[in-house]
Design a protein around this nucleic acid. Structure first.
Lengths: 292, 292
DNA sequence: TTTCTGTCTTTTATCTACAATAGACAGATG
DNA sequence: CATCTGTCTATTGTAGATAAAAGACAGAAA
């Protein structure tokens, strides 16, 4: 196998959903636009849809013949890109499995375990190295530096610098900036989750990312925004991993967010700084608690 | 060709220098230590040295027979690692050649131009992407974001945050920290260059990197230290590129550095902040002036 | 005239193969 | 008995090949 056709499979699945809602599909370029793929892939999707008897296709006439059933879809395991699969496997290994700092990472072994070639693993490790958790010894192996207390402290130190700076920029955004509307929307979701916290506390993780990314974006600084990737991935896996007291933690964080959001809306830099510092402090403590 | 043997060639050249100074080479492990390579490579070096009649080699007895001449060395072009060659070619293209932002970057074309396989180019681009100058469109090309005014401003914004923080940490280092000695050594080089500025102003670039890296190191934060790579590469190529008024610029920067160093040595946080800010401000202005 | 389709070319993503390099182990040597 | 050498194995770095996906262009259709 050279290239996986996950783009095709994933787009095909998404196309089936569109197909369920109309009787006539649009033009190829339009469909490509809607699915975010090239015409080549669109045509592959149409070909397969025709073969399955889902549509009849004659040039510009693409008529839906029947609604897609569950068996028409590709299984979800096959629609994830290789990079996603590698990331998951890798994070599971280093977070769940015995992940002692200093451990060697073996490309070939990892590749075999994941069932892929070494090139992809290698490229993943190179990309991943910017998260500061692994390091390359040239002409030799990678070394796991480990998700340690130092790591968490270094990460949060930079995070705090960047977020304070971004928050200070946020209050200076012009009234018509779309960020204000997004902030309102985010606030509303916070209230909704809080009012049904017992059932919905798990939604916090995703909301957290959405909120902080919005703040970081207002820095208009690519380095600050890019760094948020590091924070996001660490917190993402951290939430998955450390579920103790999740409900209470999330409830408290939601409250802190609301105070922080109110401060942003007040546009008073001092209030913002205060609320931001308070929230970041407790976020840091939570993260540190989960590290032995 | 599978793997380049640049490690061997480079180590061989360095070994010739050692060889010129002794009549008897040490043991294989010791030699490996000195050259920073494995025993496998050491033995390859010894084998070749023997073939060239430079030494006689019998088990532990490695006697130097003659001093190496110029023709014994590998040409320097062959000792650079592939990654270095790719970096240079790439930087020349995007800094010197018409490097309009938005330009597409083609892996295959680059590889052909440099005379290497696509894999290496790809891996280089992935590593390089963390410098914020290029961006990947998945399943498609890379886009050059360009060495623009915004880039320089975003870079210096973060640089200033990080360096102020690091400098503040520096003054808190214990007296016995080796950084203080290194700082003294750096100061001495500054004075030496300044006293012969007309001839030696070109040495500033390297000294600048050495000094700022020392400061950043005292942050003990991997993200801050890693970020210095970005700064270093940008300034490195910037110095190579923009030579107008280099003498005056460097003389001024040297003076600023001396003030900054004195402030660090005074251990007075307020003086440090002032001197640091002053220097960073003029560094930013210099950088911006070189951008159209 | 504008947008669409059929066809073709180019480029990327990924696998496999292989030389260079690192590293392990047992027996040799001082 | 500690260190070195000979030999062997494992792993990385790089090239080359190939399917998937993107994208270009000319002629067809509205």
């Amino acid at each position: 196998m050279a290239k996986q056709n996950t783009v095709f499979k994933d787009a095909f699945n998404r196309c089936l959903k569109l197909l369920a809602e109309t009787s006539m599909l649009p033009s190829e370029p339009e469909l490509g636009q809607a699915l975010g793929v090239s015409r080549t892939t669109v045509r592959a999707i149409l070909t397969r849809s025709e073969e399955l008897g889902l549509i009849s296709w004659d040039k510009r006439r693409k008529t839906v013949l029947r609604s897609p059933g569950p068996s028409d879809y590709f299984p979800t395991e096959e629609t994830d890109s290789l990079a996603e699969r590698i990331e998951r496997s890798f994070m599971r290994r280093i977070l769940a499995g015995g992940a002692e700092p200093g451990m060697q990472i073996n490309e070939l072994e990892l590749a075999r375990e994941i069932g892929t070639g070494t090139t992809s693993v290698r490229e993943f490790l190179i990309r991943f190295s910017r998260f500061g958790l692994i390091e390359k010894r040239p002409n030799s192996h990678w070394v796991l530096k480990g998700f340690t207390r130092e790591f968490a402290l270094e990460l949060t130190e930079v995070r705090e610098m960047f977020e304070l700076r971004s928050a200070a920029r946020f209050v200076a955004l012009p009234d018509e900036d779309p960020a204000w509307d997004e902030l309102k929307a985010i606030e509303a979701v916070h209230r909704a989750i809080l009012s049904d916290i017992d059932k919905r506390y798990k939604e916090f993780s995703e909301l957290d990312e959405r909120f902080h990314l919005l703040v970081h974006r207002s820095s208009s600084n690519r380095f600050i925004i890019d760094f948020y990737d590091v924070i996001a991935i660490v917190f993402h896996y951290h939430y998955q991993w450390n579920k103790a007291h999740a409900r209470e933690r999330n409830a408290r964080a939601l409250e802190e967010h609301l105070a922080y959001i109110a401060a942003l809306q007040s546009r008073d830099p001092r209030q913002v700084e205060q609320a931001c510092r308070r929230h970041l402090k407790s976020a840091r403590e939570t993260l540190l608690q989960s590290i032995p």
